[in-house]
Amino acid sequence: MARLSVTDLSVTYRTGDGDLTAVDRVTFDIQDNEIFGIVGESGCGKSTLGDSFLQLLDENGSISGGSIVYDGMDLAAMTDRELADEVRGNKISMIFQDPNASLDPVYTVGQQLVETITKHLDMNKKAARERAIELLDDVGIPDPEDRIDNYPHSFSGGQLQRIVIAIALSCEPGLLIADEPTTGLDVSIQAQILDLLEELAESHETSIVMITHDLGVVAEICDRVGVMYAGNMVEIAPIQQLFDAPRHPYTQALLDSIPERHGMKEDLTVIPGHPPDLRQPPTGCRYNPRCDQVCGMECETGDVPPTYDVEGTDVMCYLYDEGVNEAYEGPTNIVAEPGGDD
C-alpha cells in the first residue's frame, strides 16, 4: 500500500529574474516500509522536493500545484500550524546533511530527545528519558545512560548523525525524509550510518525517502529510485532494474560517468552542455539540448514528454513511444500525461 502519494507536485520560487519552477509536476508513490531514493545532480530539485513534503521551503518558495497525500491528509493543502501540530516530527520527520545544524548546542542531547518525545507522545519526563536512553542505544551510542547528559559538541560527526536519527525516530514516524544524511561523513562512518538506517527502517516499520547525489548510496540501501533532472522526475525504477537497464538517456549517461563503471584510465562518458536555467527551461523534453538520442520533433517542442511504463520502469521519454520513435517496437503505455493545469 502506498504510504505517501505525490501527484503532479510543483514547487515554484519567486526570484528577481522571474519565477523558477524547481519541481515540475512530479508524481510518485512511496510504499510501506520502502526505502525510496531520489537521486540527481545539484540544482535538479531533489532537496526542494524533500523540503516541500513538510513545507520547509525558503520564504520565496511555495507549492504551486498538485498534492502530497499521507495517511488521508493532503500535506500540500495544510497550513504551517497544522503541519507543525500534527505531522512534523510525529508522523513524518526529517534529517539533514549537517547534524550540527539540527541540534541546539546549548542543550544536552537528552533534553532535546525528551523535548521531542514529550511534545508528540503522551509521556512524562521520566518515561521520556527512559525512552531516550533506549533510542540512543538503538542507534548505537555506547553507554547511553551516561552520554545522554552530554552536550552535542562532545560527540563526533558520525555520532551526532546517529543522535539526530534517534530524535527523528523518537515518535515512530511513518516516514523519514533523509536529505544527504551521509554526505559530510567519512566512508567508514557513512557505511555504518547507512546500515543503521536500513536496520531501523525495518525494525520501526518506517519508510525512508533517501535524497542523495551518490549513486553508490542509492545502490546500497534503496528499494526503488527516482531520478530527477531539471525539476522533472525522469525515471522511476526498482533499484536493480535502474542499474541494469536504465531507460532514460540522462540516467544512462549519469551511470556511465561514474568511474567505478569503467576500466582503469578509460575515458568516462561526458554529458555535453549544462543543466538548463529553470527560469527559461527548454521547450519539449528538458534534457533534449544535451541528449544524444533525440528521436523526433516532439522531443524539442511543446510540453515535457508524458511518462511511459516500460517493463516496470516509469520513464519520461519519447524513445518509448511508437508514435515518435519509429525504431521502438514495444508497446506504448502512457501512465501520465504532463498535467493539464499548465
Binding site: 563526533s156 558520525g158 555520532q159 567519512d186 566512508v187 567508514s188 562512518i189 557513512q190 557505511a191 555504518q192 547507512l194 546500515d195 551518490d214 549513486l215 553508490g216 548510496v217 542509492v218 545502490a219 546500497e220 533499484i239 536493480q240 542499474f243 551511470l255 561514474i258 567505478e260 563503471r261
Partner: peptide, 22 residues
Amino acid sequence: LNSVPQPQPGGSKSTDGLTGEI
C-alpha cells in the same frame, strides 16, 4: 574498500566495513 557503497546494487553489502570511530 568494504565501506565504499558500490554503484551496483546487490553487490557485497557494507556489513563487513569498519567498526568504531576514527
